Simulated scan of single mutants.
Amino acid sequence: MTLPYDINGHGPAVLLLHAGVCDRRMWDPQWQPLADAGFQVIRCDLRGFGQSPLPAQPYSNSGDLLDLLDSLGLDQVTLIGSSYGGKVAVETAAAHPDRVAALILLAAALPGREPTPERRALGDREDALVEAGDLAAAAQLMVETSLGPDAGEDAKRLVREMQLRAYELQLAEGVAGPVKPEVDPAGITMPCLAVSGAHDLPDFRDTATFLPAARHVELPWAGHLPSMERPAEVTDLIVSFLRETSGTSPSA
């Protein structure tokens, strides 16, 4: 299966991986600006999100990404991952470092890490609402806890819509989840920018501890989805790092 995807622009390839409360629509604010900055931009729906249903058997997120890259004839890309997408990016970079030129991690979830009590409590609240059949309340909970104080109403509406779609796919009968590979962070030696938000849970703020070679930037205004909260500011941060690591110029 090839993941549903969009592609735009020309230049060094960049693959955008969405958060677990979102799908590829979360990247709308970055979509055209990254292409205009001189990059070939790809975004996809991971399985269980957006237009990508879950299969009946366990699957590999990294395998899905490699299949997508192969179908596009791309030997190497920079992976930009938000939250769950950041976890998938780290897993892929660790297993297939030759395919990943650089990493940009936005409030990334990290493989193999035990959740903090705060995150476990949030998961328990969400599970209780889902089990009670109140998906609207569960989605609203995730909107309120994912977006920081600068998020606008359009961002809140879209996260709610994307989260409800994820519930629809993930609660279907007879579906399976992804395999959980072992990840050795020592194998991740490509350039890496790790961005966190001061208003986020601690789980998503210690990427630099897990990836000591990463350059860490904490945004004092941000929650868990900074690219949706202050899109232009985060796009500028992304473009600056992409130009530094890919060697492209502002006139590219």
Rank of each mutant, 00 (worst) to 15 (best):
L3Y: 02
N8C: 12
N8K: 11
G9E: 06
P12I: 02
V14I: 13
R24W: 04
W27Q: 01
W27Y: 11
D28P: 01
P33N: 05
G38C: 10
G38Y: 13
R43I: 08
C44L: 12
D45I: 09
R47A: 03
F49C: 14
G50P: 13
Q51P: 03
S52C: 08
P53F: 08
L54G: 07
A56W: 08
P58F: 09
P58H: 11
Y59V: 01
N61R: 05
S62H: 05
S62W: 01
D64G: 00
L65G: 06
L65Y: 07
S71T: 15
D75Y: 07
G81Q: 05
S82E: 08
S82R: 00
Y84C: 01
Y84W: 14
V88H: 02
A89W: 08
T92P: 07
A93S: 08
D98I: 01
R99V: 07
A101D: 03
L103M: 05
L103E: 01
A107L: 00
A109K: 03
L110E: 02
G112W: 13
R113K: 14
E118C: 08
R119T: 15
R120I: 11
A121P: 09
L122G: 08
G123M: 11
D127H: 10
L129Q: 09
V130N: 05
V130T: 12
E131G: 03
G133N: 08
D134I: 04
A138H: 07
A139S: 10
Q140T: 14
E144P: 06
T145L: 06
P149N: 10
G152S: 12
G152Q: 10
E153H: 11
D154H: 14
D154Y: 13
V159D: 05
L164H: 08
A166F: 12
Y167A: 05
Y167L: 10
A172K: 14
G177Y: 09
V179L: 14
D184W: 03
I188W: 14
I188R: 12
P191M: 07
C192S: 12
D200S: 08
D203N: 12
F204A: 07
T207N: 13
P212V: 10
P212C: 10
L219Y: 04
P220Q: 02
A222G: 06
A222N: 02
G223S: 11
G223M: 09
G223E: 04
H224C: 05
L225D: 02
P226N: 06
M228F: 05
P231G: 02
A232P: 04
T235M: 02
D236K: 15
L237W: 06
I238Y: 14
S240D: 15
R243T: 06
R243L: 01
T245V: 15
S246I: 04
T248L: 10
S251Q: 15
